[in-house]
Design a protein around this nucleic acid. Structure first.
Ligand code: FES
Ligand code: FES
Lengths: 157, 157
DNA sequence: TACTTAACCTAGCAAAATAGTCAACTATTA
DNA sequence: TAATAGTTGACTATTTTGCTAGGTTAAGTA
């Protein structure tokens, strides 16, 4: 499991998609504009996400992308794994034989740690994040509404 | 929190150090040989680890590196943070103002997730990993011993 | 049928990060 | 003093990243 800005872009885009594709597909152009990510970079990311079976492209006018599964069934680890080249972080490439005596200090250890992180990220779904974010959005909207009300009151003075 | 091979190198080297520096300091040459990491790359990593106050260099013959703290007081997150350039993973660089309406979809969300991963890695100490590894080592040795016994039995036939 | 839309694909590029090298230098200690 | 071993800085190669530019293909619409 590698964790870089690339993965962040992917998670962000997927979250945007989850948030806006309730009714109709969302175009990458829209996501690019909202999240300030280059369109073609998004295309690259979504090509991988599509090949991983997480999203589905709909061509033609009114088209765009939509999720293949429910937001509760899409986890963060899968998204990150989909966009990152699956690099074998071991020297031996699966075989546990690079040295005689201290062979797997790197091998088992990092693999285990990496697996733990993956498990952790697997336990977080898009729905979980959406919920969190929605709470915040609601809070902000309520704040705005409140301010709006205050302004109206002010005008009525 | 970023997770790349660089961090893996650092954690692996620190673990090797923890494992071998019980009695006397360990030279980077030894670690380089054991873990098949380039010596000069290790030097770079250990320069950062030293600046972060995690290891101490001992000069002269019989010198090398040793840990500044107990293995139970050194966590994985700190090691990884020490070798990675502290990059601000947000576009806005701390300010939450990159866009008007959807400002912090990226911001709060990824920051929070990143923080959670960091917390998780903070909860794992070198001692924890050592213990695990030692358990495995014992297991392997036992397995070897068992096979050895089998071979002896075979010879006795 | 022609046109538009947006997915889908390809090649290439500049900047950054990563991984590793080399050589000179300094401090320690046997 | 001579050997050892850390310290430093500059330098190079490779990979990844994020992006641009240009297409092709499928699906709607006039
Ligand atoms: S990396 Fe797999 S055995 Fe050393
Ligand atoms: S990244 Fe911080 S507000 Fe958008």
């Amino acid at each position: 499991m590698r964790l870089t800005t690339k993965g962040r872009y992917a998670v962000t885009a997927m979250l945007d998609l989850a948030f806006h594709s309730q009714i109709k597909p969302v175009t990458l152009t829209d996501i690019a504009a909202r999240q300030t990510i280059s369109l073609s970079y998004l295309e690259q990311l979504f090509a991988r996400l599509r090949r991983a079976g997480m999203v589905k492209g709909v061509r033609g006018p009114g088209g765009g992308y939509k999720l293949c599964r429910k937001t509760s069934e899409i986890n963060i680890a899968d998204i990150i794994a989909a966009v990152n080249e699956p690099i074998d972080s071991t020297k031996c490439g699966g075989e546990a034989n690079c040295q005689k005596d201290q062979a797997c200090l790197t091998h088992d250890l990092w693999m285990g740690l990496s697996e733990q992180i993956k498990d952790y990220l697997k336990s977080i779904s898009l729905a979980d994040l959406l919920e969190k974010n929605q709470v915040q959005e609601v809070a902000i909207r309520q704040h705005h509404d409140a301010q709006h009300t205050i302004e109206i009151h002010h005008h009525q003075d």
